[in-house]
């Protein structure tokens, strides 16, 4: 396999030095893959995404992106920071936090302008990304006039406009209506087909085979306990029960084999 573009080695992180979120996590992200982080609420997948985006920094262990170590100090360097921020984009779970500008157009312009892109090019790109996500008519709206699904589209537009190589999604389909969920699933497939690397955290297993070709499973004590293709993971009912992704009353998945023990 090709060289990893993002790599965590033995990463541990605890909020306020008291509440552990990651325990000695090692993982790699390869160019062009679709990687799903699976786990129950509070298992550490969001925190891992924030590590991968250089928003929180491991208290022990190391994180390397595109061959360079990413630390609080290394991101102080403007060139390093700009390079990293433009290559990795993050769609937050909470669109309200991500969409912070007074209008949709300004929101989408924020990233490119921060990256030093010219005004004309920014404006052209905004129109293109709005058209691509089918939200051109929202351009001059204020965020409080948007529905949850529209806000999610704006948040995605504000990241896509920077054309990052790696896209991180935190619970992308959470709290969305079925049609928007389906649209987003399709979008992730399209982006992947266009060569983007996708990493997303989810506990929605229904469409896993479409939006992932590799999965990492987090246990509730913040460790990675399994790795495999969606079919592998979905077949291990005991594992899914153990990490609190399904419960005893869950129906078997359509994609899973009836035999709980897979041959991997």
């Amino acid at each position: 396999m090709n060289e990893p573009i993002l790599e965590c080695i033995d990463v541990s992180y605890a909020y306020l030095d008291k509440f552990p979120a990651l325990e000695r996590v090692s993982m790699q992200v390869h160019a062009g893959e679709k990687l799903a982080l699976l786990g129950a609420n509070g298992s550490g997948k969001s925190t891992l995404l924030k590590v991968l985006d250089g928003l929180v920094f491991p208290q022990s262990g190391s994180f390397t992106a595109f061959g360079e170590p990413v630390t609080e100090e290394s991101l102080e360097d403007e060139q390093m920071s700009q390079g990293f921020r433009s290559r990795v984009g993050f769609v937050f779970q909470n669109s309200d936090a991500q969409v912070f500008s007074p209008s949709v157009r300004e929101e989408i312009a924020f990233g490119p302008l921060q990256m030093g892109m010219g005004r004309d090019e920014t404006l052209t790109r905004i129109d293109e990304v709005l058209a691509m996500l089918d939200i051109a008519e929202l351009a001059d709206r204020a965020p409080f006039q948007l529905s949850g699904g529209q806000k999610k589209r704006v948040a995605i537009a504000s990241v896509l406009v920077m054309n990052p190589e790696v896209l991180l999604f935190d619970e992308p389909t959470a709290a969305l209506d079925p049609r928007t969920q389906e649209w987003l699933t399709g979008l992730i497939e399209d982006l992947s087909a266009a060569g983007k690397t996708i990493v997303h955290a989810t506990h929605d297993l229904d469409v896993l085979d479409r939006i992932a070709d590799r999965c990492l499973v987090f246990s509730e004590d913040h460790r990675i306990v399994a790795e495999g293709t969606p079919a592998d993971i979905m077949g291990q009912r005991d594992l899914l029960l153990d990490v609190n992704l399904i419960h005893h009353h869950s129906r078997p998945f359509g994609t899973a084999t009836t035999d709980p023990v897979t041959t991997a």
């Binding site: 924030k50 985006d53 928003l55 403007e78 920071s81 700009q82 921020r85 433009s86 984009g89 993050f90 937050f92 936090a97 991500q98 912070f100 157009r105 300004e106 312009a109 924020f110 990233g111 302008l113 921060q114 990256m115 005004r119 920014t122 404006l123 504000s158 990241v159 920077m162």
Partner: peptide, 16 residues
């Protein structure tokens, strides 16, 4: 964090 993630470094740049 959302601002940092999109390259905010304390300098405001306006579109308009």
């Amino acid at each position: 964090q959302a601002m940092i993630a999109r390259g905010f470094r304390g300098d405001v740049k306006a579109l308009k």
